[in-house]
């Protein structure tokens, strides 16, 4: 909507594109009130429609997202065993304990490491694979499916499967032994120096398919004319990728980065299934969510656990807002600033 018409937007919409029509409308006093009245009832109707259509979703969102967040914030101020109502108000003690707990520093480091490694490893790999799979090669759709399959398999199956394969006496070590590579055999899961890298390998295997599909979709949306034009101008393959594909793939990469960061910060299921909440800390793979389950639910410190949830929420929101503000700004410009009317 155009700003030049100021607050008088309703007649403005009608008269857009006819300079001076707004003034004319304002001077012709008898006509507009009726029209405006009709339009007002139209707006009310639209509002009602919006309310009816989005109401249920908003209610569900309030009841199952916002309300629990508020409750967690409330419980976070109590020392509470989870039986009966919380009564033992401890103020900010829980938060002080969390922020000074070396175990929490450790899990936060793991989370940040996973964020960075996911971006650095999966990003280039996914772009490369997408470029490759965008070529006309034999068996392309089969390869695409194979790469995407791990993403579709449930976390439980992935976790259980890899957990069994990588056990100290599991299939991977057995295979290495049979190949005469005994020196390559390791305690993939239980060696604290290795476990986090094992986890990263599994995460990459699991989620690369999603990134590749996103990138492929991004590539499809780049008009072929650009490539043709560049080719005619004598650009080499690599020049085209560097100067045309990557910049135009930017929005996709940035959105994928956002999803990847949020996913990494909230990583829970794979670690929970492979290591469980008890030894994840020992193996050096525990994340904030695992810490929350171990110290909150398993230790039956529901007040403390709620406080951890709040800390996680704040950290995730902070990172998300920062990312939106500085990285996604260009992509979101239209969507946020003018209601998507473009």
């Amino acid at each position: 909507m155009s700003d030049t018409l100021g607050t008088d937007t309703a007649p403005g919409r009608q008269s857009q594109g006819t300079p001076g029509a707004g003034d004319a409308g304002r001077s012709a006093s008898p006509a507009p009130p009726r029209a405006a009245g009709r339009r007002r009832s139209g707006r009310a109707r639209m509002r009602l429609e919006i309310a009816i259509l989005s109401g249920p979703a908003i209610l569900v969102f309030l009841a199952f997202v916002i309300f629990p967040v508020v409750l967690a914030a409330y419980y976070g101020f109590y020392r509470w065993k989870g039986y009966g109502d919380p009564t033992d108000w401890v103020g900010l003690d829980n938060y002080k304990l969390i922020l000074t707990d070396p175990a929490f520093h450790e899990v936060l480091t793991h989370n940040l490491l996973i964020v960075v490694l996911s971006l650095v490893v999966q990003g280039p790999l996914a772009v490369g694979l997408a470029l490759l799979l965008n070529q006309k090669i034999r068996g392309r759709s089969v390869i695409r499916i194979l790469i995407f399959v791990p993403y579709v398999i449930s976390e439980i199956i992935v976790g259980t499967g890899w957990g069994l394969l990588l056990q100290s006496n599991g299939a991977v070590n057995d295979l290495l032994g049979k190949l005469g590579l005994e020196s390559w055999q390791h305690d993939w899961l239980s060696d604290p120096d290795l476990a986090l890298w094992t986890l990263m390998a599994i995460i990459t295997w699991k989620y690369i398919g999603f990134a590749v599909i996103l990138m492929l979709a991004g590539l499809q949306s780049i008009p072929d004319e650009l490539f043709e034009a560049a080719e005619i101008d004598g650009a080499s393959y690599w020049q085209i990728q560097r100067r045309i594909t990557l910049p135009l793939l930017g929005p996709t990469i940035r959105i994928w980065g956002f999803l990847s960061i949020i996913g990494s910060l909230q990583l829970f299921d794979l670690v929970f299934i492979i290591w469980g909440p008890y030894i994840a800390g020992t193996a050096g793979t525990s994340t904030m969510a695992i810490y929350m389950v171990a110290e909150g639910r398993n230790a039956a410190n529901f007040g403390y656990g709620s406080a951890i949830a709040v800390v996680m929420f704040v950290i995730s929101m902070f990172v998300a807002l920062l990312y939106q503000r500085f990285v996604l700004r260009r992509d979101l410009q239209g969507a946020v600033t003018d209601g998507g009317s473009r």
Partner: peptide, 14 residues
């Protein structure tokens, strides 16, 4: 046993 850190107590033959 080897790899006892990732051995569960009661689930399955392993």
């Amino acid at each position: 046993q080897k790899g006892y850190l990732t051995t569960p107590a009661q689930q399955g033959a392993g």
